[in-house]
Design a protein around this nucleic acid. Sequence first.
DNA 1: GTTTGTCTTCGCGTGCACTCCAATTCCTAA
DNA 2: TTAGGAATTGGAGTGCACGCGAAGACAAAC
Lengths: 149, 149
Amino acid sequence: MAVNAGETEQYLGIAEVAERTGLTQNTLRWYEREGMFPRVLRGTDRRRRYTERQVGLLRLLTRLRRTGMPTREMRRFSELLADGATTHGQRLELLTAHRERILARQAELRADLEALDDKVAHYHWLIEQGLDCSGAPINAETDTDNGGQ
Amino acid sequence: MAVNAGETEQYLGIAEVAERTGLTQNTLRWYEREGMFPRVLRGTDRRRRYTERQVGLLRLLTRLRRTGMPTREMRRFSELLADGATTHGQRLELLTAHRERILARQAELRADLEALDDKVAHYHWLIEQGLDCSGAPINAETDTDNGGQ
DNA sequence: GTTTGTCTTCGCGTGCACTCCAATTCCTAA
DNA sequence: TTAGGAATTGGAGTGCACGCGAAGACAAAC
């Protein structure tokens, strides 16, 4: 430990950032190499020194990725960041477009969950009817179930 | 067309099933080959003949996959189907476990969407303050933004 | 009876998002 | 001064879920 022993203490080493963001060290390096994250400042020992602000950005990126944003869009976002305050509009555009995808995904999930619930209810019903526990009655072909609707 | 010309008409060709399930023909064949779907009956010409019931099952499998079920679990489910009515309990178990995952995913999505909304609001505010459109004022370093709370 | 078109099987190829590795560098502790 | 341990780099490998193309079979159309 004590990555920031001889320095300002306000900078974070990669190990701590990994722990705080849930990303692995490998992923952090890979994001940076591939341009998904702006270049991180290095100390005199060539090691990465993250700021609190950058950890915040990583948390945002984690959420974007987890909600299905492809890496090339994260890259695009990172480029816009590097271009400074003149790109706020474009960043907003990118984020709102992604927001729409999340909403669509939520609707899809809801519908899929509902269908699954119907199926679960159906199985509960079947079991209550005694159609389980190796007392297989009537027909026992390959497609004995997956009922109607 | 006319896959079921010389036969009972109640069977469906792979093309129609692909269209009705949203899966490609490749995926349908692959599911079957890899055991994610029970063996499909063949006609005299060796081609697949699906039943309406199987289309229903495919729709369920599509929902399971779309909601993140790994293929080995779909395989497991398919095996249970082949074992007939004695496995209703195990199928129910598998489906309810997956249901829990969907609920967790929904909660995660909600939280991520909320964070994104905060971010979007932040950018709206920034732009209203005039911090856009190449009139970059104050500081224009690499990390000029992504503010904490 | 040849063409056209759709299907078959088998197996290699692809895209994405990491993940791991080897060789090296640097700081700290003994 | 030496050893240990954590971090660095570039590049190769992995797992998942398909995608795709070749070679051949068969039915209906011409």
